[in-house]
């Protein structure tokens, strides 16, 4: 019997605890989860793991979300990215959308909503 490959999600967020909570939740939903706590590590993991979907925090120190997204897009134009925004980041969110982001969700977010979004994106893939 062939085991259906689990869809891989890459979470790039500098908030470790938050990333962990998402990890727990998404694993329970049947996804394979990888975490990166910075943009640069995220970029690395992206090349290693080749995820099916990326959750990207736009506000990170060092290489911020936009820069990370740019670099990812240089490698892969199509991988779906959901950006995690906080209140005052309208400008950044708009910038991200110009780089082909599939959706966004604002912190603090409704987990069920996030899972629904992820499900619907990956189902259609």
């Amino acid at each position: 019997m062939v085991e259906i490959a689990k869809k891989k999600i890459l979470i790039i967020d500098d908030e470790e605890e938050l990333a962990n909570s998402l990890d727990i939740r998404l694993k329970a939903c049947g996804y394979e989860v990888n975490i990166a706590n910075s943009g640069s590590v995220g970029l690395q993991k992206f090349k290693e793991v080749i995820p099916d979907l990326i959750l990207l925090d736009v506000m990170m120190p060092d290489m911020d979300g936009i820069e990370t997204l740019k670099r990812i897009r240089e490698i892969d134009e199509k991988v779906p990215v959901i950006i995690l925004t906080a209140y005052g980041t309208m400008k950044t969110a708009l910038e991200a959308f110009s780089m082909n982001v599939v959706d966004h969700i604002a912190k603090p977010f409704d987990t069920k909503l996030l899972v629904e979004k992820i499900d619907s994106i990956l189902k259609n893939k």
């Binding site: 938050l18 906080a86 912190k107």
Partner: peptide, 9 residues
């Protein structure tokens, strides 16, 4: 917001 999100999660 981030701590709130973590707590909620």
């Amino acid at each position: 917001r981030t701590p709130l999100t973590t707590m909620k999660e």
